[in-house]
Design a protein around this nucleic acid. Structure first.
Length: 300
DNA sequence: GTTAGGG
DNA sequence: CCCTAAC
């Protein structure tokens, strides 16, 4: 179910169409609601007098029986704790400057979100050197400054309002109008961009040369086990761009130049493992074709 | 949770 | 980087 389409932008400011599905819906709703309320409130859900904290838990897990009517639905509006680290890192301001007043619209609607995303709040990374061929890429200085753990226990005490809506059923609630166009859909926290250093590229190339292009989990564990901000998906993506970079003319490349020697190794490894994958697929097909007659014989 | 690709 | 269908 495609909920909406919004304009996003890639690194170079080119508009990109992104399909947003149910998984992203909750973030959007939270942003819209908080925007309407002025950005100074957080929204909690209350069912049958019990506060629903963990969205991943079922109502039953939250201690709420399901055999009752969902007529005891309510919500809380609480001020965001002033202790919450609402400050943003410098690298976070990627959005186009407008007349908006960011101070009135905190990027983080909840402290939980802050804890999830704080990792991205480190600034430009200092360059680090490769010391050995093993786990050369570490992330000690990459990891973001540890956030201040705000106590969430006093949130209930800070509640300013508690409203129940017994008349409103689930259906009506789901139809509550949501602002069609939040001022800045871009408010969805996105990981800060962290260009791969030459050292990282070196580590990636060496790992792929050894493991191939279909085991990114292992590549991550092998060469980026200490780089928390580099997921195996990131490594897969980086390899893709490396192959592309190696194929285009040096004049078209941007960013910190990658030594040609590395790019050559990229192409070599890419070619090698491509054939490797093709061979394996052929073997697979041959095995299947050879098994077919056997099963036929067995059936006869 | 991983892989693999398009966006 | 993000998003997600497939596995």
């Amino acid at each position: 179910m495609v909920l909406e389409r919004r304009l996003d932008y890639d690194f170079y400011g080119h508009p990109v169409q992104i399909k947003r599905r149910a998984r992203s819906a909750r973030r959007s709703v939270m942003e819209a609601v908080t925007a309407v309320l002025g950005g100074g409130l957080r929204v909690g859900v209350i069912l049958q007098g019990k506060k629903v904290r963990d969205d991943n838990k079922t109502l039953l897990q939250a201690g709420i029986s399901h055999d009752n009517q969902l007529d005891a639905l309510g919500f809380t509006l609480e001020p965001i704790s002033p202790q919450s680290p609402t400050s943003l890192c410098a690298a976070d301001s990627r959005h186009i400057p407008t007349a908006d007043k960011p101070q009135l619209l905190p990027r983080y609607p909840s402290s939980a979100a802050i804890h999830q995303r704080n990792q991205s709040c480190s600034d430009v990374l200092p360059e680090h050197r490769v010391t050995s061929l093993g786990n050369l890429v570490d992330s000690d200085h990459d990891s973001a400054p540890s956030p201040v753990k705000t106590s969430v226990d006093k949130r209930l005490a800070d509640s300013r309002a508690f409203v129940t809506v017994p008349e409103m059923g689930m259906q009506a609630l789901s139809l509550l109008p949501v602002p069609q166009k939040p001022k800045r859909p871009e408010t969805v926290q996105r990981r800060i961009r962290r260009p791969f250093s030459v050292a990282e590229v070196e580590a990636l190339v060496q790992a792929v040369e050894k493991l191939g292009t279909g085991r990114w989990r292992d590549v991550k564990l092998r060469a980026f086990n200490n780089a928390k901000h580099r997921t195996y998906v990131d490594l897969k993506d980086k390899w893709k761009t490396l192959v592309h970079t190696a194929r285009i003319s040096p004049q078209q490349r941007r960013g910190e130049p990658v030594p040609q020697e590395l790019l050559d190794r990229v192409l070599t490894a890419h070619a090698f493992w491509s054939q490797h994958q093709t061979k394996q697929q052929l073997n697979k097909q041959h095995q299947q074709q050879q098994q077919q007659p056997q099963t036929c014989l067995l059936l006869q």
